[in-house]
Design a protein around this nucleic acid. Sequence first.
DNA 1: AATTAGCACTCATACAAATCGAGTGCTAAC
DNA 2: GTTAGCACTCGATTTGTATGAGTGCTAATT
Lengths: 347, 347
Amino acid sequence: MELNERKTRILEAIIRNYLETGEPVGSRTISKYEELHLSPATIRNEMSDLEEMGYILQPHTSSGRIPSDKGYRFYVDRLMQDKEREVADMHEMVVQKADELSELLKQVARLLADNTNYAAMISTPQIHHNKLKFIQLSKVDVDQILAVIVVEGNIIKNKMIRVDGEMDADTVLKLNLLLNTHLNGLSLEDINLGLITLIKERAGIHSAVVASVIDAVAEAIRADEDLEIYTSGANNIFKYPELTDKEKASDIISTLEEKRQFGKLMRESLQEAAEEGGTGTGIQVYIGDESPIQTMKDCSVVTATYELEDGMKGMMSIIGPKRMDYEKVAKTLKTLQTQLDALYKKT
Amino acid sequence: MELNERKTRILEAIIRNYLETGEPVGSRTISKYEELHLSPATIRNEMSDLEEMGYILQPHTSSGRIPSDKGYRFYVDRLMQDKEREVADMHEMVVQKADELSELLKQVARLLADNTNYAAMISTPQIHHNKLKFIQLSKVDVDQILAVIVVEGNIIKNKMIRVDGEMDADTVLKLNLLLNTHLNGLSLEDINLGLITLIKERAGIHSAVVASVIDAVAEAIRADEDLEIYTSGANNIFKYPELTDKEKASDIISTLEEKRQFGKLMRESLQEAAEEGGTGTGIQVYIGDESPIQTMKDCSVVTATYELEDGMKGMMSIIGPKRMDYEKVAKTLKTLQTQLDALYKKT
DNA sequence: AATTAGCACTCATACAAATCGAGTGCTAAC
DNA sequence: GTTAGCACTCGATTTGTATGAGTGCTAATT
């Protein structure tokens, strides 16, 4: 069967109406849309077809129709862009630059949640492409050395290293120089085992102590899974009855709390954004089962990548019911993308 | 009216039963407790008295009784200790020392939640009593200086300082020395404005640049409200029907998410623990409205202070229904108190 | 051939009445 | 002082009934 012009319009009307009300929509309701000039009976026939084709479904015999996942997908892919011009009057969101990146991201998460009335999350940017700017070892205690590692974008990592034996101030100084000359300017992913071995050699066969310190530093550099995730607006899901029963709510809440579950989503999302190339907006929509996170099967998840200076890419996303206002969400995400971008360009 | 032996036992039976079932408990139920040898009718008379005295109440005419806040309070204060011996077979929880304090605390929060089936939170320790161990300024970029501040207990603070003018390496070095000689060994709260002014003077009237850097460092030191709070097990509240209606659940979830709301609770709790003196266990119980957090009025909150080496005190707490298993919760908190303590003593 | 009106049918929802039963308070007997 | 007995209360559950939104199908209309 073919999805002709009229079917498309009816499908759109059904979905739009359902997005607004959250209630199954019947033929009579649709027949009232003037553009169509169709009687309920005709609509019913078309609906029957649409159901057969999998775009809509009935929660129970003889009730109105609701969009299926496939229906939402069609809506997002085909119908939404056409209407983009309609969305206009969203006021700009204001992001204040925070001292700490983490504060900034928390703020963004909150903005996303407050503006959309859905739950929001945002991750810290990935930094393995970033270049190492500076390393400093300092002797803090008799047996402790503090390594401070600064990466492009002013991401700072600290690592307290406990040394087994003695290590005099002079050695520390020398090590500092050595590490900086060899590693500065390299991107984190380029700092590999071979390089580390080389540095150890250069350091002389001094002692196991020195080697262990170098290892510790290398480990700190490699541990770029300092990926933090901030969430906001979890309570918003209570605004949507279809997500509020014990089971579902509990699932969603715990996913939001167990932030690391988002790792998978993030990887996939960044991946897809990359494949899409420079042209796209970097916005992905996962409807129900499409989501890489099993527990999100009753929700839709809209993700967007953002980019700070120096190509640090992170991800933010909105989690809401399938009948979320996709247009508004997309617009909101885009606005924040732009603002984050601008914020870091200027300074 | 006097709360005699028999009334006490009946009250205890009522509360215990309610804690188990979550249902109002009637006279017949209580009469089955063999220790009492009383008929339902007698129990009813006693219940009537207990209600008049405010320890229990009826959700509606002619239904069983449930404990009032006052009843819970009595239970926690008088009845619980007597039975402490009964609680025995809780297996020890294992805390692995994590590299980062934050990881450790997240782990503890999770343990608390998993073991009790309630929601849990834990704060980072307060450090204003702690002594400054080490300051290091490093020139990272032409116009950027990184300040690393290490506090007793190996708490590390980073602050990126943007300088307006130029600052040569020599000045940085000199400043390093100056700051360390003046500040090392002082507790954070002792570093006041006078001291900062003194240092500025010693630095010479070099330039506004130097002064601004010193100010920035001072600010970083003073900003000990790096208070972080980690939560776990928010979804556990769905296990208790009395907390699961939209309104209440939403309140609780958002309080858990808006972690800073716990600030008040934390201050009060540490305060009370301090007043209690060294003898107490540092465990506080807030029942319903007793809680300093308004949104927690339908829950009970049990807090415990913990202490890492060097007197860094933090707080952890369990949030659950009023009918939570207070004994188990107290035991769990104590166990973790002890384990945290031990963990830092050893190393 | 496409559209529409009409009709019988389905089923969630709301509502009221009926019933049940756990629990109470009170009184009288023990 | 304790207990048995009884009338009474009131939430919860069940049952029956009506309502209405919605459907699918068929026959009439355009």
